[in-house]
Simulated assay, not measured.
Amino acid sequence: MNPKTMSTRSRIIAGALVAAVAGTVTVGAVSANADQPETPAVAVAAKANTSDRNVTTVPVLTIDAATKAAEASLAAANKAGQHVSVAVVDRDGVTRVLLKGDGAGPQSAESATRKAFTAVSWNAPTSELAKRLAQAPGLKDIPNTLFLAGGAPVQSKGAPIAAIGVAGAPSGDQDEQFAEAGVATLGG
């Protein structure tokens, strides 16, 4: 049919059909390509990025090890007749394991987490850090920290990779003993 002799209505319908066919072909091509593996250019670029010298690997405490340590801390507290909560955080202060022991107070879970966060942040037991407040009282204003005894860092080659915090015993010294019992199960 000659486009010059077609009515406006016929031209609109013909144009719509052409657009529909073109769209179907395009969608089909995209769908077919979606099932294809990466092109070599993309694979090469990804491979090149993995050898970037600006990337580092950091040791991480496994979830099994974190759970083992938390359970050991809780068992030490139970043996002493104390009702505590135990938190294990990773190097970034993210909670990996939190155990709220039977009979532990409502504040103990958050306190244990904050003690662990504080210990990993400074790579030191929180009992030592609490003593530093006399020289630097502003430390206590850092969010999510708690400068009370009961937090112990977990180290690998001298660097902090995690920490255990315990809260709920009548004294921070007891909390810290229970935290250290968890660290001891990790072999270091």
Rank of each mutant, 00 (worst) to 15 (best):
A134I: 06
G15I: 04
G172K: 05
P59M: 08
V84A: 11
Q82S: 13
A70K: 08
I142A: 04
T67S: 14
R114N: 15
L17D: 01
P170W: 04
N49Q: 15
V166S: 11
T62H: 02
G151R: 05
A159Y: 10
G15T: 08
A162D: 13
P106N: 05
V18M: 06
A167E: 10
L129F: 12
W122A: 12
A14L: 10
P153I: 02
A112S: 07
A75N: 03
E38H: 09
T126N: 04
S31T: 14
G188H: 10
V88Q: 02
P37N: 04
D35S: 15
R53M: 13
A162E: 05
I142T: 11
L186K: 15
V25Q: 08
K100E: 09
L186E: 10
R96M: 14
G81P: 00
R53E: 13
D102G: 04
P170T: 12
G105F: 04
V21H: 01
S10N: 07
A169Q: 07
G187H: 05
T5D: 15
A162Y: 09
G151W: 06
G28D: 05
L98N: 13
T95M: 03
A32C: 06
L186H: 13
E176Y: 07
K79N: 08
A109Q: 03
I164S: 05
L98K: 12
F178H: 08
G151D: 03
S111E: 12
P137G: 01
L186V: 03
G172W: 05
T95K: 10
A48S: 12
A48I: 08
A20W: 06
A149W: 11
E176D: 04
E71Q: 11
E38F: 11
G168C: 14
S156M: 09
D35V: 04
S171K: 07
A72K: 04
P40N: 07
E128R: 12
V89W: 12
A167C: 13
G23R: 06
A72L: 03
V25Y: 08
T24E: 07
A109E: 01
M1F: 06
A34W: 13
M6D: 13
A163I: 09
T62N: 02
A152P: 09
A46I: 01
T5R: 11
A20I: 14
S51Y: 06
P59A: 15
T24P: 01
V183Q: 03
A119I: 11
L186P: 14
A179Y: 01
D90E: 07
A104C: 09
